[in-house]
Design a protein around this nucleic acid. Structure first.
Lengths: 160, 160
DNA sequence: GTTCCTGCAAAGAGTTTGCATTGTG
DNA sequence: CACAATGCAAACTCTTTGCAGGAAC
């Protein structure tokens, strides 16, 4: 699935969701969705706000938080609580389930998939008679090479 | 290791750590450590504060946050960032590495151990040339039985 | 006596809320 | 034209900070 396919798929999901519940198809919601699907990978409310401003869109924080809640509800966006109290979001349509490896030096986030993990989660569910719905595995690690290769690029840690 | 053994072991670690760095062995630090090791499993700064008050100890929030930072630094306490922006702590001396299964209905936290998970973490580290230091796996699940068995007991979710 | 620690109150970050206004259906 | 969504500012929660007084060594 290309990224523009993911966007149009996401737009369909959104419009269907809005229609079903009598919610409104506002320009703001569409713009936020476009911005997320075109420009952002792991982001917080504030970086979404800045990206919108750079596109010439003045959308209030209240609307951003509302919209993110809406998108999480309809599965267009996932919300993560990483260490340091960071709440980060990522688009979820057209991407497969994955987990996160975070560099302790710079906060760079590497995604990874491990099919073994699904087995661990299922096993735990069986053991405690619970039905796992989702899970987050975050691995915190140091780079092996001297100096972190992502030190300059950084997004989230360095700006703290 | 019994829980009082864990406390005295934790006290030794704390005193050694303080001595090594020329930090002070204050009554507040000792009381906070005692309270955590005697009364708390998964807790936030505010519930620690309430437990201290119930013991007749008036310790300011500033000191609580300072002390928690100190205890995290010397490994006496672990800090977790769960969903909903909850920062929770738990004592770590005398307990083995474990992960968390959280009931979506009530927020009840079940601990579990799965040796497979260590292999997953190591594998990811090798793949990306990083040295994993620690990891958090949180599984969110629904109870299979009708109505959640922990619904009344709750600690963190219900009070939100 | 020096330095670290505590408590208080104020400040700060991130998020939520109330309400008047705007715009979709 | 009804009602949902937006924008703004104020409120709120959790955490951090600055500073004066107090305690450990």
């Amino acid at each position: 699935m290309t990224s523009s396919e993911a966007l149009s798929h996401a737009q369909e999901i959104l419009e269907k969701y809005l229609l079903e519940r009598g919610l409104r198809r506002t320009e703001e919601r569409l713009e936020v969705l476009r911005t997320i699907y075109e420009e952002l990978t792991h982001f917080d409310a504030d970086s979404l706000h800045r990206h919108l401003l750079e596109r010439g869109l003045r959308i209030s924080r209240a609307t951003i938080y509302n919209t993110l809640d809406l998108f999480v509800s309809c599965g267009l966006v996932k919300r993560y609580a990483f260490a340091e109290g960071r709440t980060l979001y990522e688009r979820s349509v057209g991407r497969r389930q994955h987990d996160h490896l975070i560099c302790i030096e710079c906060g760079h986030i590497q995604e990874f998939c491990d099919p073994q993990l699904g087995l661990v989660v299922e096993g735990v569910g069986r053991l405690f008679h619970m039905n796992p719905v989702h899970h987050d595995l975050v691995v915190y690690a140091h780079c092996q090479v001297e100096g972190c290769p992502h030190r300059s690029e950084n997004s989230t840690f360095a700006t703290k």
